[in-house]
Simulated scan of single mutants.
Amino acid sequence: MLRYIVERISDGKFLELELPITVSGAGRKLGGAGSFSGEIAPIFDVYKYAGSDALIDPLATYIHEDADGVIRGSWIVTRTEFEGAIWRIEGQGFSSFFSGRPYEGEYRGVKVDPIAVARHVAEHAQNMTSADIGVKVVGSSSLRVGTDSDTQLAAAEAVLKEAKRARTENTKARTSKTKTKQALTKSHEVSRCDYQSIAGDIEGSSRGVAGAPEGEGTGRTDRCSADGPQQRGTGREDCAGREEGRPQACQ
């Protein structure tokens, strides 16, 4: 004997054990939600449920197909509509309840049982207000899914970022050392130029005392400039123009 049982989802109360419905479709689908459709007539049977707690409400009622004590299918009522004296009822399988519902939780699994994942999703969806339809995912499997590739990628990116930062810091340090070295070298060159200028003045004065005639230069050519020290003259370039009787100043 085939009969259709009506159950209220919220409290599990059976509203009708033999629903007088003419079923036009009661299918099941592998890997998806099956569908149900039928209509209640005549008008007397429709009015039996109107205004009572036995009213079949969409998304609040189950319809079970029972064949000699064996439940062969269950559907959530998704639509009810009156067409004159006929009450049309439609339903979908359990999985349709979860279709299109947003997941607002957080879950991370590495090498986890996919059935455990489905159980978590089902529990999360039914934790919302007035959303508990009594679906419980049970069992387990030996299959494992999920990898930590995203974690490894994040770690690799962090290492790369740190290496780039270290290279930047090293470049800055080398640049700073180079600038400091250049500044010290320039300071040293200027100091040497000053020293050579003073030494040249002393040397020229000494030669003038040794017998250079009045008005005659010392023969020193000062080549220090802002561009750094250059080779100075020794004073010997003036010897050719001196008189032969005064060689001591050119020694």
Results as ranks from 00 to 15, higher is better:
Val6Thr: 09
Val6Ser: 04
Arg8His: 13
Phe14Val: 13
Leu17Asp: 05
Leu17Ile: 01
Glu18Ala: 08
Leu19Pro: 05
Ser24Glu: 05
Arg28Met: 03
Ala41Ile: 13
Ala41Ser: 09
Tyr47Gly: 14
Ala54Ile: 01
Leu55Gly: 13
Leu59Ser: 09
Asp66Gln: 07
Asp68Phe: 10
Ile76Asp: 00
Trp87Pro: 02
Ser95Thr: 07
Phe97Asp: 11
Phe97Ala: 07
Phe98Ala: 04
Ser99Glu: 15
Glu104Lys: 14
Glu104Leu: 15
Arg108Leu: 10
Val110Gln: 09
Pro114Arg: 03
Ala118Trp: 01
His124Asp: 15
Ala125Thr: 11
Gln126Ser: 10
Asn127Glu: 15
Asp132Gly: 08
Ile133Pro: 06
Lys136Pro: 03
Val138Glu: 15
Val145Glu: 11
Asp148Ile: 00
Thr151Pro: 00
Thr151Tyr: 08
Ala154Ile: 09
Ala163Leu: 11
Ala166Cys: 02
Asn170Cys: 00
Arg174Leu: 05
Ser176Cys: 01
Thr178His: 00
Thr180Tyr: 01
Lys181Ile: 03
Thr185Glu: 09
His188Asp: 14
Gln196Leu: 14
Ile202Met: 07
Arg220Met: 07
Asp222Ser: 05
Cys224Asn: 15
Pro229Asp: 11
Gly233Gln: 06
Cys239Asp: 02
Gly241Ile: 12
Gly241Thr: 15
Arg242Asp: 14
Glu244Phe: 12
Pro247Asn: 04
Pro247Phe: 05
Pro247Ile: 09
Cys250Ser: 05
